[in-house]
Write a protein that binds this DNA or RNA. Structure first.
Lengths: 196, 196
DNA sequence: CTAAGTAAGTTCCAAATTGAACTTGACTAC
DNA sequence: GTAGTCAAGTTCAATTTGGAACTTACTTAG
């Protein structure tokens, strides 16, 4: 709760305050404390703060783009997964992933795709030795960044946060499909936005 | 906590289970329950689930792209804000926003930009009557979607979640700038990723 | 008053992204 | 076996994106 700043109808009384001092725009205050969607704003904002530096580090260090690294990460957690799985869990469209996979193969980070584990025409993707090495080198950085993010919370608070977020995610299975009104042609879902 | 599925070294014993039944890939289970970064995965995943349908609804209904709607939303919370502010708080690069603003003006959703409130060369952006109308029509949908998302939580739990997330966001001011190792040329920050 | 400095906003263009169409392979029913 | 159905993956083309360079406008120092 709490209404912190005085944005909205600001008549520019005395303030314009932190604008340049601390570099934090009033707008951030407004988005944090007067937002009709405070939860999702925090979600999005934290995702921004977390992802941006990490993926730009990955880019600079390993020359991998975000969706390429996402493939690595995904396979590290579920080796033998398919492009479709990665698409579903990350939000990247399948053609983007197709290219990513191709490039990773070329770089020798994936093993040759074995034919099909699950259903239809699915291809099982697996990390190569080199792919695992890359993953093992990089996870600690991601982990420590998450750790860093959670610094303000005690052990117990983290546990609670984890449980609450899990509840929300698990519950999401219900609503995650019916849009406001029309789903219309929305056949294949994923249309934007990404996940690690 | 809790190791749910049996992904990682899956030898395809009996399962491949929900793969087609419920449409949830094992990979999702792995990412949820065996992820070295469980918090940020949830963050990203929820952002995905929330943003995707809403913005594609906005697109279909009002013909506005995500960053365009973000401008509207941002100004609704902090009227008179500048493009720079929106960039900072949303993560979109300034040229993208420049274009968005231009288009919104053309559509009559913004008032003519007044010169400068804060410092330097800043332009104050304001919603027009029409812009407010659009915002007022759409927020309820965003709100109800957030509400929907939080359904699994009791009132008290929501309050706790809100407080914990706030703590993390507020604490972010400290770490939000130093990358893993080199910030290098990273002058203007925002390089990818978006926020509402 | 002029010069230098700074940063917001804009333009440009090469590169990346993705919807749509297509291809491919597998499974199912006959 | 063959035909039909379905979805994973790929290709293609058009749009979108965002880094770099530029412009503009204000602020400050001389």
């Amino acid at each position: 709760m709490a209404a912190a700043s005085g944005a909205s109808e600001q008549k520019i009384g005395t303030s314009e305050s932190a604008q340049d001092l601390d570099d934090l725009p009033d707008m951030l205050e407004a988005k944090l404390w007067e937002n009709p969607c405070p939860f999702t704003f925090r979600i999005n904002y934290l995702a921004l703060l977390y992802n941006t530096p990490l993926y730009s580090w990955i880019q600079d260090t390993y020359g991998l783009k975000r969706h390429e690294y996402v493939v690595i990460y995904s396979l590290a957690l579920a080796n033998g997964g398919s492009a479709r799985d990665i698409s579903r869990t990350s939000g990247f469209p399948k053609n983007t992933l197709s290219r990513a996979v191709k490039r990773l193969e070329l770089m020798g980070l994936l093993e040759e795709r074995s034919k099909a584990p699950g259903g239809g025409r699915r291809q099982a993707l697996r990390l190569s030795e080199k792919g695992w090495k890359l993953f093992n080198e990089t996870v600690p950085v991601f982990e420590s960044y998450e750790e860093r993010m959670l610094t303000p919370l005690s052990k117990g608070e983290r546990q609670i946060l984890f449980e609450l977020m899990s509840k929300v995610v698990v519950g999401a299975e219900d609503w995650a499909d019916d849009l406001p009104q029309a789903g219309a042609k929305g056949s294949t879902r994923n249309t934007k936005g990404e996940t690690q």
